[in-house]
Nucleic acid binder design. Structure first.
Lengths: 338, 338
DNA sequence: ATAAGTAAGTTAAACGTTTAACTGATATTT
DNA sequence: AAATATCAGTTAAACGTTTAACTTACTTAT
């Protein structure tokens, strides 16, 4: 059943080295011999053993995909999509993707990811925020690292990022165009590079439009950008400032929370208050009204990260590049004229 | 940096065979030697090379996870969750999971999944409905197969299934307990084993409660269990029978559609009509009112499938078992008393 | 005619494990 | 006291590739 290189060699009447060289299209092998070998391969339905190859090449043919438990388990399939993207791209690059999650509470005693310990990967794509301690440890072993949707503090690795600043601007400009002036911003975990940048985009656009940036329009206290936090932030904001006519939430989860609060408080969306989110998660379409948001091409992010990884692997020491993946405004029904 | 068994042997002052045997806790090695070896292992931070192991054991340590493109890409992260479950369980079983999708239009000319071609997996978990032709081809190569959430036509493989009949009963009994008598059923693609069984559960519970099963309370025509179909089915049902006080939809997507129709027609949920779904997808919580449903433990389904696979792999030819994973009623706000 | 070069293979070592078969002590049985 | 069993380890082959170094037969240049 399972044929080896030996069987092919026998059938083709050549040595196993010739078969190997023929497979790799080595110039030392004549076209005719290559044909003979190819014929034998087809007849025997042979395909090389990965294990044997890996053993001698000291490569594994696998790329690790690392993220935190809560990112993978969270309701919105954000990182799942990114993972999917790496998987799609890996296919063309002849790689497999191995997934591993780590706790957010990673500490000194915790083990390294399984695929690192048993040397099952040639490189690691790290998605989203992961504990810096883990990054430290990982940077000590000699594996190529590529970050997607996160900027580690010691920034010497290739980065694949959402163009958050531009996205923040897009969202804000959309509201400005609709005639809004009192535009609130809801953030959570403002130290997170993505959220920080979206906030930058917000401020940039306001400045550009000549609108002064007002403190009581901005909520940055929430520690985490989740639904409930969006709800709480919206309440605080509205309590302090009745003039708000539009809210830009730093992500859809918070936008959804904010919408819940607004509905609970009897505000009509978008007649009384417009809401825009960021990410474009599936749930947005189910909302009433469906949420206007900034679409992040999640699958594309993952694919890009894998492309960078393959480059790094083939090209040994390529300069650590930084790729910004563009976003786009998706206008639905949650935003209207002021 | 990367230490091999040779280094460990040298450091411990024994042969490499001894190291290997010690690692596998072989009885021929004395406790004292084992300690020595362990010490050397720790000091060198050694861990065995998977490639080398795989080569000699002729195992890969990988399990394939196969499903169709559209199942993986569809909005509700149903199969994604199942995948996650296999991944979690794989961890304890020392396996890695390799994912591969196939088109629903798989035909004779299409290649087998990549991980089959290059012999990168020891077994395959197949999730959801996949083309029978592919199953045929796969059954010819000698890899263990485990199906999750699908029953292939030639049923000789281990199966991990949702307990759909019981779920159907749970849903129906919940409505009966609330005092409902005119309980409608909305199905789509009634030939699908899962939907068929949910319908069985419905009928069983009605019989048990002494309620006659009425044709104009049942909609089975819809070809596909999607939102729009739920909308259409609900309309037809209500048009034909104004006495309906409760609807059991065969899945959440159809339930969501039905709710939309009811709202559009001015019915209050649950005051006028109760609605219950099946699956418990994330969207349910966002609805107004949030949907009462039957929770399907998706992660658990995947974990169970992996457990079965590991059993099969360790135990060579275990009888093809069939595991029914239990479901539970999640009561939210879309069902009330008649 | 001889040396040098090239073309097309082949040989054999290496990759890092596992494991069957062997060895050489001790301990036990007869 | 000799034969046998047990214990604790070692030796060496095998797994299926890749690849540097070697071979052999032609070409071509001098």
């Amino acid at each position: 059943m399972k044929s080896t290189i030996k069987d092919v060699a026998q059938k083709a009447g050549v040595s196993i080295a010739t078969v190997s060289l023929a497979i790799h299209d080595h110039k030392r092998i004549s076209p005719e011999t290559k044909r003979k070998v190819q014929k034998a391969i087809n007849e025997l339905n042979y395909s090389p053993s990965k294990s044997a190859r890996n053993l001698v090449s000291k490569k594994t043919g696998n790329i690790g995909f690392l993220l935190t438990d809560d990112h993978f388990l969270r309701t919105e399939p954000f990182y799942t999509r990114i993972f999917l993207g790496t998987e799609f791209e890996a296919r063309t690059g002849e790689y497999y993707v191995l997934l591993n999650t780590v706790g957010t509470d990673y500490d000194e005693c915790d083990k390294l990811p399984r695929f690192v310990l048993d040397k099952s990967v040639d490189g690691i794509i790290i998605a989203g925020k992961v504990p810096e301690l883990l990054i430290d440890k990982l940077s000590r072993i000699n594996l190529p690292l590529v970050f997607v949707d996160y900027i580690p503090s010691k920034n010497k690795y290739p980065l694949v990022l959402i163009d958050n600043i531009h996205g923040g601007s897009l969202a804000t400009e959309h509201l400005i165009e609709k005639g809004h002036k009192n535009i609130a911003f809801i953030g959570g975990d403002i130290n997170h590079p993505s959220i920080h940048d979206r906030f930058q985009g917000y401020k940039l656009s306001l400045e550009k439009a000549g609108i002064t940036i007002t403190d009581n329009l901005i909520s940055l206290e929430e520690p985490y950008p989740a639904r409930q936090n969006g709800y709480d932030a919206a309440r605080r904001l509205i309590d302090n400032n009745k003039d708000i006519t539009a809210i830009f939430a730093c992500n859809d989860a918070m936008a959804i929370g904010a919408m819940h609060f607004l509905k609970d408080s009897g505000y009509k969306i978008p007649q009384d208050i417009s809401v825009i989110g960021f990410d474009d998660v599936e749930a947005d379409l189910l909302l009433d009204p469906p949420l206007t948001t900034i679409r992040v091409p999640k699958v594309e992010l993952g694919a890009e990260a894998m492309r960078v990884m393959v480059d790094v692997l083939n090209n040994d020491n390529i300069a650590a590049k930084k790729i910004l993946v563009p976003v786009e405004l998706i206008e639905r029904k949650s935003t209207g004229t002021a």
